[in-house]
């Protein structure tokens, strides 16, 4: 196994863990706004780590370009979508969870 493969494997595993963490957080966190933070782990760290991990095991340049384009798209669109969502929810008056409140 070459160094690149080991590195790629490590990135992939870290990405898988981040994705899993995001999913668990989506279920465990108490309200909408805190769940956005959990989803953010999947969207930024998880996606970035997995795509970088795949990037280290490409064999042609146009695969690499496609991976980079996906990475760029996700880095641009996911925070924008999240921001629009949070903004809309706030304008709609979705209540904010404070410590001690029941889960919702």
């Amino acid at each position: 196994m070459s160094v690149l493969e080991v590195l790629s494997g490590a990135l992939l595993i870290a990405g898988a863990l981040a994705v899993l963490t995001g999913g668990v957080g989506m279920l465990r966190f108490p309200d909408f706004y805190t769940r956005i933070h959990a989803a953010g782990i999947t969207d930024s760290a998880g996606a970035g780590l997995i795509l970088l991990g795949l990037l280290l095991r490409v064999d042609t340049w146009n695969t690499a370009v496609r991976l980079l384009i996906i990475l760029l798209f996700l880095a641009l669109t996911s925070p924008t979508a999240t921001h629009i969502l949070a903004h809309a929810a706030r304008r709609d008056g979705v209540p904010m969870w404070r410590k001690g409140d029941p889960r919702r």
Partner: peptide, 10 residues
């Protein structure tokens, strides 16, 4: 927003 833990609302 991209940084987990902080989120821009407005």
């Amino acid at each position: 927003t991209l940084t987990p833990g902080t989120l821009s609302l407005d």
